[in-house]
Structure formats: structure tokens, C-alpha cells
Design a protein around this nucleic acid. Structure first.
Lengths: 205, 205
DNA sequence: CCAGCTTGATGACGTCATGTCAACAGCGCT
DNA sequence: AGCGCTGTTGACATGACGTCATCAAGCTGG
């Protein structure tokens, strides 16, 4: 009679549901600022009830951590390649930087959202900062290796590395993190100019 | 009887109280991440009750806006000077950049906190973004003026301007926005290197 | 000098998002 | 057929926010 009717959807594996949640989050992160995202919003998007969220994640920051794990994996790969200390010809280096820019073309809005989320939660902050810090270290080492090899004039590698990574991060996020998006070719050219002039433009320039 | 006893402090002008709140906020922004700041925390610091906060500000973002108005005034002044299009000798330009770095030495943690706050509220975001955007425009115009004057090789002024400002912003916030602080002289040298090499290191380098 | 305005203190309240729980229902595997 | 897992509903406690009504007390103008 007045017994509550509980509709059930066709059986689903936990992995599927989890995926739906992560995917909904990925969509939403591209659509609106992180601050406006709540459990309610995400689960409405998935079509599931709010409580099921807590069966799969502790809270929104945990979900963001999962997103970071996914997107970050590719970024680390691209980044490691980019900062590879192995001798690289200019054309090779240019191509690697292009991959980096391309990553932002594909994931810029999500990266931007993660940066926002980092300011809302300590754990996300730690994860994001660790990633950026990793890039700075990689870059510094790459610069130092080139200096040791005599390819570059000596310079303050740690600080220049930090500054260049921050530039990359901030500029790419600005240009490719949200609409209106800047032409990627122009972005690549700009970033390439600054990196090469900074690193190679010292002695003779 | 059991009538509540309301203690009152010696009469204070509204301006004084407002100042106490802003000052408490300035202190707190240097001590802990923005996300941990609530009305309660701020007013405990001032020694006033929580409700009095709402007599002076609508909410925490409004308070941050007030802080931006204070600190931002000085920043705009320094920035306008820095980006002044007037012909500047290298030593002059170096001194102006030093003023910029010095601003971050004095206010870095507050600026950092404002950047965090921007991700928590649309109005603060707008104010902060407008400020950064202003710097980008100033920088772009300065570069274009130098190009027109023949001081610089032609380059994509708007994009290079954006990237350089983002670098400045991100790097200074990293280096001088929270402990451990980097040696300001090293910071200045790094920023100077990147700016000059990027702008002047093209043709011959 | 007093009346009224202003400012702050207290304590209570409604609201909203969070995170937790206790039933309950259906799918699938043993 | 029975048990375990997953999801649904609805309820609840919590904590921060923002608002209010009420009271105390300083300041100011008539």
C-alpha cells in the first residue's frame, strides 16, 4: 500500500558507478567553477542518489584526487618527456613542448579546475603542489644538465626553473584553461620564445 | 535578577572597529590558508562578537574586497610605474622591477591569500582577475610602444605580455608568498633575466 | 540635562550543505 | 533458494552562515 517503491536500475558494477561519478565530475569541472560544485550537483548529473556518492568517495576532495590521478598520469608522462635531460635538438625540443601545449588544449579546463580545487582542500592542495613541484625539479635538473654539458651559460637553475614552470603553468591555464581559448599555435610560439630566449639568449643576446 | 549583563567596551567609532576587522583579517591571511577563515575566527581575533561583523561587512568576500582595495592601491601604483612606457634605461627599469619585487616582499602572503580567496567567490575573483588583466594590458602596451620605437624586435606583444605577467605573478607568489621565503635579490635577478632575455634576447641571441 | 541615535553584546533562529544511518528492494552468484 | 552487494528513500546530527529582537551604554543635539 503506502510501502515506499524503490526503483532500481539494471545491475551495475561498482566500477561502472564510480566511473559515472568521475565522468560527471570531469564534465562539470569544465562547465562551472569548482566552488559551485556540491555532492548534490554531481550526483544529479549521474542520475544516482546523493547517498551513493558516499559509498564510493569520502567527499568532493577525494573525488578530485581521483580525477588528478587520471589526468595527472598523462601529464607526468608528457612532462617527463619534455624535461628529458637527454640531448635534444631544437626541433625535437619544440615538438616536445608542442605535446605539452597539446595536453592543455585537451585538458586545460580540468587542470584549471583542479588548481581551483587545490585552494579548497589541503589534500588536493598537497597533490597539486607536489605535481607542480615535481615539474620544477625536473626542469631544474634538465637545465643543470645542459649547463654541465656546456650547452648553456651558467645561470641560477633552480630559480629560473621555478619561474619558467610557473610561467608555463599560469600562462597555459590562462590561455587554454577556459573560453575564449587562444590559438594553440600562438601559445606554443610564445612559450617557445620565452624558454629559448631565457635559456639560450644570455651570452650572445 | 537574571537579566543578562551586557558588558560594553569604551565607545569606539565605526571606523575604528572596521579597521580592527580589516587588520585582524590581514593578520590571519598571513597565518593560515584562506579556506580556514570564517567569520568566527576573524571576530575572535578582534575581540568583538560575531554579529558585529555583519554590521560592517556583508560577508567574508566583502571583507576581502576591502583588503584588496587597500593593498591593491599600492600595487597599481607600483605596477603603473613599472610598466611605464616612457623610455627607461636598463638601470631605471631594473630599479622599477626591484620596487615590484619589494612589494611582494612586504605583501606577498596577503597577495597569495587574495589569490586563494578569488577561487572561493565570484566577486573577489572578478576583482583579482581585473587587476591581473590590467597588468597584462599595461605590459602589452609597454612592449608595443618599445617595438614601435624600434627598441625591440617585433614580437607577439599581447601573448608575450600575458606570459610574462603570469610568470611574474606565479613565481613571485611562489617565492615570496609564503615561508620559506626566497632571497629577494635572487628573485629579482631571476625575473630580470627572464624579462630582458625574452624581450631583448631575440634578434642577436 | 535629557532624549534619541548609534554601536556593540547576547542569544535565538532559519537555512543550507555535509556526512551518517537505518530500513528496504532487486540483481547475481553460490 | 538464500545471501551479499549495490542502490534508493527518508531521516538525522552537525556546523557555518546570515538575520533578528532585545538590551546596555556612549555620544550628541536640542
Amino acid at each position: 500500500m503506502s510501502a515506499p517503491v524503490h526503483r532500481t536500475r539494471p545491475r551495475q558494477s561498482p566500477e561502472q558507478t564510480r566511473r559515472q561519478i568521475v565522468d560527471a565530475m570531469l564534465e562539470l569541472l569544465r562547465e562551472q567553477p569548482f566552488r559551485e560544485l556540491g555532492v548534490e550537483t554531481v550526483m544529479t548529473r549521474t542520475g544516482h542518489s546523493r547517498t551513493v556518492f558516499y559509498r564510493h568517495f569520502d567527499d568532493i576532495p577525494s573525488l578530485v584526487l581521483a580525477v588528478i590521478a587520471e589526468v595527472g598520469a598523462e601529464l607526468v608522462e608528457v612532462g617527463a618527456d619534455w624535461a628529458a635531460t637527454g640531448s635534444a635538438s631544437p626541433t625535437e625540443a619544440h615538438a616536445r613542448l608542442a605535446r605539452f601545449v597539446d595536453f592543455y588544449v585537451r585538458h586545460g579546463p580540468v587542470v584549471r579546475a583542479i588548481a581551483q580545487a587545490a585552494h579548497h582542500d589541503a589534500a588536493v592542495d598537497a597533490a597539486y603542489s607536489a605535481m607542480v613541484e615535481g615539474f620544477i625539479v625536473m626542469t631544474t635538473q634538465a637545465i643543470q644538465a645542459r649547463v654541465a654539458a656546456g650547452d648553456l651559460e651558467p645561470l641560477d637553475a633552480p630559480e629560473v626553473g621555478r619561474a619558467l614552470v610557473r610561467m608555463l603553468n599560469g600562462y597555459l591555464e590562462d590561455a587554454l584553461g577556459s573560453a575564449p581559448f587562444t590559438d594553440p599555435a600562438r601559445v606554443l610560439e610564445t612559450v617557445w620564445t620565452i624558454w629559448t630566449r631565457t635559456l639560450y639568449g644570455g651570452a650572445t643576446g
